[in-house]
Design a protein around this nucleic acid. Sequence first.
DNA 1: GAGGGGTGAGGGAGCGCTCCCTGAGGGGTG
DNA 2: CACCCCTCAGGGAGCGCTCCCTCACCCCTC
Lengths: 330, 330
Amino acid sequence: MKRPTLAVVAARAGVSKSSVSRVINGETTVAPEIREVVMQAVRELGYVPNAAARNLVTRRTDAVAVVVSDPPKGVVSDDPLFSTVVRTVSRELEAFGKRLVLILAESDESRARVERYVAGGHVDGVMLVALHGADPLPAALARMGLPVASFNRTSAADVPYVALDNAGGAELAVRHLLDRDRRRIATITGPLDLYEARERLEGYRATLRDTGRRSIVALGDFTRISGAEAMRQLLEDDPDLDAVFAANDLMAIGALRTLHQAGRRVPDDVAVVGFDDIEAAAYTTPALTSVRSSMADQATATVRLLLGLIEGAPRKPVIMPNELVIREST
Amino acid sequence: MKRPTLAVVAARAGVSKSSVSRVINGETTVAPEIREVVMQAVRELGYVPNAAARNLVTRRTDAVAVVVSDPPKGVVSDDPLFSTVVRTVSRELEAFGKRLVLILAESDESRARVERYVAGGHVDGVMLVALHGADPLPAALARMGLPVASFNRTSAADVPYVALDNAGGAELAVRHLLDRDRRRIATITGPLDLYEARERLEGYRATLRDTGRRSIVALGDFTRISGAEAMRQLLEDDPDLDAVFAANDLMAIGALRTLHQAGRRVPDDVAVVGFDDIEAAAYTTPALTSVRSSMADQATATVRLLLGLIEGAPRKPVIMPNELVIREST
DNA sequence: GAGGGGTGAGGGAGCGCTCCCTGAGGGGTG
DNA sequence: CACCCCTCAGGGAGCGCTCCCTCACCCCTC
C-alpha cells in the first residue's frame, strides 16, 4: 500500500538519492549505465514522486487555478460557453503539463476562500473567467504577486486579459444589417455592468451614428428569457423595426421566439443577428446569423498568456478578432 | 514577497510552533489567551499555511480529481450536461471544503497521465465521469487503493457508482406513449457500448414486449445529427409509426427536425419523448417531453458517495429515480 | 504537607524531495 | 611528470508543517 520513496529506489539501484533525483528530473549529467539501473528500479517498484514533497522544496505545483467568478444564478456559467471554455482550457493546460483546479466563486465567502487558497501556494497561477468589471477578486489576486490572467477584460488595472473586439463585432453585425437594406435596427443589450455588454452596445450605437440612424435599445441580461421580453418591449416601442442585433445568442434565441409568437417572419419582416455563435445558433429555426468570437481561441489565448506570465513574460493584453457567420435569420 | 511561516508566527506571538499549529487547526486544548495572541500574529502577518508542507506530513490534500474520460469528439463532454455536472460537483465539493481538479482524459496517453497523477498523491479521491463501460481507467485507479466513485455505472467490479434507473425511465416514457394511444412506437438508441444506451433500449423493449407490441429500432450515438439520421431511417422503415422514444434529448431534437422536414406534425402525427431533460428540451418547438434524470442530483450523490469513501464508508452503488416531464411533443 | 493525576505548552523528529557543496577520478596541458 | 580543470556521484541540509513525547504546573486527595 505504501508507495516507495526516492530512498527506496536509490537503495534498490545501489546509487545515491541524488542520482535517482537527477534521473527522474531528466538531468543530463548522469552516466548512461546509472540512468539505466535507476530506470529499472523505478519500473520495478512502480515509483512515482511524491507531489507534496517536491512542491515543498521547488515552490512549484504545475497546477493552475481557473476561477469562474459569477453570481449563483450564473449569467455566464449557465451559458453554453462554459463547457467550451473549460474544455479548451483543460486541453491546453494538459498540453503544457499543467493541472486545472476549477473553482466556481459564487459568493463573497467563496471568493475569500479563493484568496486563501491561492495564498496557500496550491497553484502557480490563476486564470479568471467571466467577471463583472467591478469584481474585487482580480485586483486582490494580482496584489499577491502570483501570475493572473483574465479571460475577460477587467477593471483591475494590472491584470492582463484577453478580450474580444466587442465593438468591432457589433459594427460587423450592424453593417451587415445595413447591407441587407434594414432601416430600423434595434438592439437588445446585455447587463451593462459587464464590459462586453457595454462595448457591444457602444459598437452598435457608433455604427448607426456614423450612418445617421437612431438607436433603438432594450435592456436584457444575457439570458434567453430576457431576450424574449426585451423583444416584446421593442415591438411595442417601435412596431416598424425591421432588424434586431442581440448582444448574445441566447437573447437572440429568446427574441426569435417572441417574433414567432408575434407573427413576424424572420428574416422577411425582421432580421436577427446574435453574438457569440454558440452551438445552438445553428439549430434555431431559422438558423441564426451571429458574430463568431471563437471562445475556444480566446480561451487558448488566455492560457498561453498565463503560462507566459508564469515564465516571466511581460504583461500585456490580447485582443481577439471576430467574424460574422451568416445564416438564415438575416 | 516571501510568505511568513509557522515559525515566524510563533516567534511573533512568543509561543511555540506547536501552539500555533494547534490554533491553526482548531484544536481545543489551547488556552484562550494563547489562542488570542496567535490569532493576532496570524492576522498581522497575513499568515496562510503552506499547503505542500501540510500535505507532506498529513497525507491529505483536500482535493478531489474529477476525471471526464471521453473520446476527443466528446459524446459526453460536448453534451449540455457537462456543465451541469461540473458546476454541481464544484458546489458540492466546495461545501465540504474540497478542491476540484478537473481532468479531461481524451486519449490513452492522457489516461496514463491520470494514473501517474493520482499515484503522485495529488488528491484524496477520484470521481469518474462518463466512461464507456469498457474503459480500463476505473479498474486501474481502484487498484491503487485510492477512493474512486463513478458518476456512471462501469464494468469495473469494485468501483462504486451512482446510476440512473435507465430501464425504468424508458418504461416511463413508453407507458406514457401507450397512454396517449400510440401503437407503433419506435426508438432511437444511443451508442450501445454505453450502459445507459443499452439499459434504455432494454427498458423500451421490455415494456413493449409486456404489452405485446413489437420494437422498431434505429441506432444513434447520442448526437443531434445521429438522431436526425436515425429518424429518417425510421420513417423509411416504418412510415406508419406514431411515436418515437429517443434515448437522449439531443437525438430527440434531431428527430424533431427530421419530422418537421418530412412534414409530420408533432405530436399530432408522431409523438416524441426524449431522455435527460436538458435545458434545451424546454425550448424546442414543440417543447419536448422528456425523462428527467436530474443530473444535478446524480452528481451530488456521486460526490457524497466519494466523500463517504474517503471517510471510510463501505462501497455500495446508488440508484437514482426518474420522473417524466410532459410537454408539448406528446 | 506529600503524592498523584490531569491539563496544556514546548521540543524535536521526521514527512520525501531538491539542490548545493564536496570530493574522487580522469584527461589535458605546460 | 606535476598540476589543474572538468565531469559527475554522493552527502546532507533544509523546505514548512504535524504530531508524538516530555515536562512543568496546578489542583485535588489522603
